[in-house]
Design a binder for these strands. Structure first.
Lengths: 225, 225
DNA sequence: CCAGTATTCCAGCGATTTCTGGAATAATGG
DNA sequence: CCATTATTCCAGAAATCGCTGGAATACTGG
């Protein structure tokens, strides 16, 4: 009982989504877009690829309806079409992690993921942040912090961390977070902080997981007088 | 701050999964494998493609660690590597449905999906089946019924339905199910049954959703004396 | 050990994808 | 309306993918 052409069309449609996530470049763009809206050039810079190429990949993502655009003057901002896309991306990521031994091997290769960083989970972080028991530190680029960050978090992009250590309290425990468990920013931040004598740990997740869990998120830098 | 080569490798790994679901043929194979384990030739027959080609696609799925094999004599059975793969497949399918208008259009084109079939949900079906208030009818090929079916369901593959109507009670309501909401078997069965004067409805989901929800599943035909 | 069957390997081709660099388009600020 | 900037469109070249058909391999049952 071979399938008729009608269901073939359906599988063709599902494969549109599949094709969209079949390229490492597009995966990286999705990863960045999970952090929030961003312009073409900024995406190209963050991903280390040419603007032309970035634009092309973004078209592919748009053709699969995974992203949408918004024009602001001469600039065009891309964003995920909705939260389901982010959720799907995370489930792809988690599947890769659980199925592909190579992923775990690569993560382990960064030396710092296991117990080393004393990772802290969502619930514990929420609880302790509420009691002002820890300082939550966002080490992603400023642009991403502005787009969305954990409510109450301080922003010091990794590149500026060494110069700005003075802004951090010497006593309190610092919890650094970044894009997610596959991102290297927070681990590197923890390493730097510890070398300088701070008590630092890593947040197990990243901003997207926090946001999707419905926990408090803030945008821009409003609130600091 | 362009990403270094280490995270590039990570994205490469994620893309392995993406590439695996970038082909409509492989999507169809995954859909079939969500119903249960199956041999190469059976998969080829069900998907209407050559054995050689099927084998090749299955290799691709195995390379991405989405499927595993089991040898039984001269035959090789393929199965999903674990439930997470099935869950991922369902989330891909649901994302396609919510994001791609074409999918909804195609489903509507089958004429029969809306209120027409009076679809019944998981909880209601479970409740009514428990009270023996409905007959649950599996209209998938016998092979898939044997691999796994809703506990208590009767098997009449769609192709044999017209000849075997006598096996069904004339009074009771019949709920037909198949592979899932994208599958045409149950809708066609409902159509046939109604033409012959039966009261028939469609189950909203398919076997995979039922199984992943932890609801009772049976294998083979054991239990019928 | 041989014949038979199920599956995989392999070469080759046409189609598709990816990246690059240059040209075209769209909105802005004088 | 022109120069500027951001983005997209458009070839063209290299790499990859998907399908086919024939050969090779692996196991079974005699």
């Amino acid at each position: 009982m071979p399938d008729d052409s009608r269901s073939a069309e359906l599988f063709e449609q599902l494969a549109r989504i599949g094709k969209a996530v079949a390229s490492p470049r597009r995966i990286e763009l999705l990863d960045l877009l999970c952090q929030g809206e961003r312009g073409v050039e900024a995406l190209a810079r963050a991903a280390g690829m040419s603007v032309t190429n970035t634009s092309q990949h973004l078209q592919a993502l748009r053709e699969a309806r995974l992203v949408e655009t918004r024009r602001e003057g001469v600039r065009i901002h891309y964003r995920l079409a909705d939260d389901d896309v982010c959720r799907f991306f995370l489930s792809l990521r988690d599947l890769a992690r659980s199925r592909l031994a190579e992923v775990e091997r690569l993560l382990a290769g960064y030396l710092l993921d296991d117990g080393e960083l004393e990772p802290i989970g969502r619930d514990e972080l929420l609880e302790r942040a509420r009691r002002h028991d820890v300082v939550v530190l966002d080490v992603r680029p400023a642009e991403e912090y502005e787009a969305a960050h954990i409510a109450g978090a301080v922003s010091i992009p990794l590149g500026e961390l060494e110069h700005r250590l003075g802004e951090l309290p010497a006593r309190a425990e610092i919890v650094a977070y970044c894009r997610g468990p596959f991102c290297l920013l927070a681990p590197q931040a923890v390493e730097i902080l510890r070398e300088r004598g701070f008590r630092a740990r890593r947040f197990l997740d990243g901003l997207p997981e926090w946001r999707l869990a419905g926990l408090p998120v803030a945008t821009a830098t409003e609130g600091a007088p």
